[in-house]
Simulated assay, not measured.
Amino acid sequence: MPIAVDIDVMLARRKMSVGELADRVGITPANLAVLKNGRAKAVRFATLAALCEVLECQPGDLLRWEESTPRADDVPQRDHETGVM
Rank of each mutant, 00 (worst) to 15 (best):
M1W: 05
M1P: 03
P2L: 09
P2I: 15
P2D: 04
A4R: 12
V5G: 10
V5Y: 10
D6W: 11
D6H: 14
D6I: 08
I7H: 02
D8K: 10
D8G: 14
V9N: 07
V9P: 00
V9H: 02
M10L: 12
L11V: 04
A12M: 08
R13F: 11
R13A: 08
R13T: 03
R14V: 01
R14G: 00
R14I: 00
K15H: 06
K15A: 08
M16A: 07
M16F: 02
G19W: 01
G19Q: 03
G19Y: 01
E20V: 05
L21D: 02
A22P: 02
R24K: 07
V25P: 01
V25I: 04
G26W: 13
G26D: 01
I27R: 05
P29Q: 09
A30M: 09
N31F: 06
N31C: 04
L32E: 01
L32I: 03
V34I: 07
V34E: 04
L35Y: 11
L35M: 13
K36M: 13
K36C: 09
K36L: 15
K36W: 10
G38F: 06
G38T: 11
R39I: 09
R39T: 15
R39W: 12
R39A: 09
A40N: 14
A40E: 05
A40S: 12
K41I: 10
A42S: 07
A42W: 15
A42N: 10
A42H: 07
A42E: 07
V43M: 04
V43R: 02
V43F: 06
R44E: 09
R44Q: 13
F45C: 05
F45L: 03
A46G: 15
A46S: 15
A46H: 06
A46Y: 14
L48H: 10
A49L: 07
A49N: 06
A50Q: 06
A50P: 03
L51V: 09
C52Y: 00
C52T: 00
C52N: 01
C52I: 00
E53F: 02
V54I: 11
V54Y: 00
L55T: 00
L55K: 01
L55V: 01
L55G: 00
C57H: 11
C57G: 10
C57L: 08
Q58E: 06
Q58N: 08
Q58P: 02
P59R: 14
P59N: 10
P59T: 14
G60F: 04
L62V: 06
L63S: 09
R64E: 14
W65F: 15
W65A: 12
E66T: 11
E66W: 02
E67L: 11
S68C: 15
P70Q: 06
R71P: 02
R71W: 04
R71H: 14
A72P: 07
A72M: 11
D73C: 11
V75C: 03
V75G: 03
V75N: 02
V75T: 03
V75P: 05
P76I: 15
P76E: 09
P76V: 08
P76L: 08
P76M: 09
R78K: 13
R78E: 10
D79W: 05
H80N: 13
H80E: 14
E81N: 09
E81M: 11
T82Q: 05
G83H: 11
G83N: 14
G83K: 13
V84G: 10
V84C: 15
M85Y: 08
M85D: 11
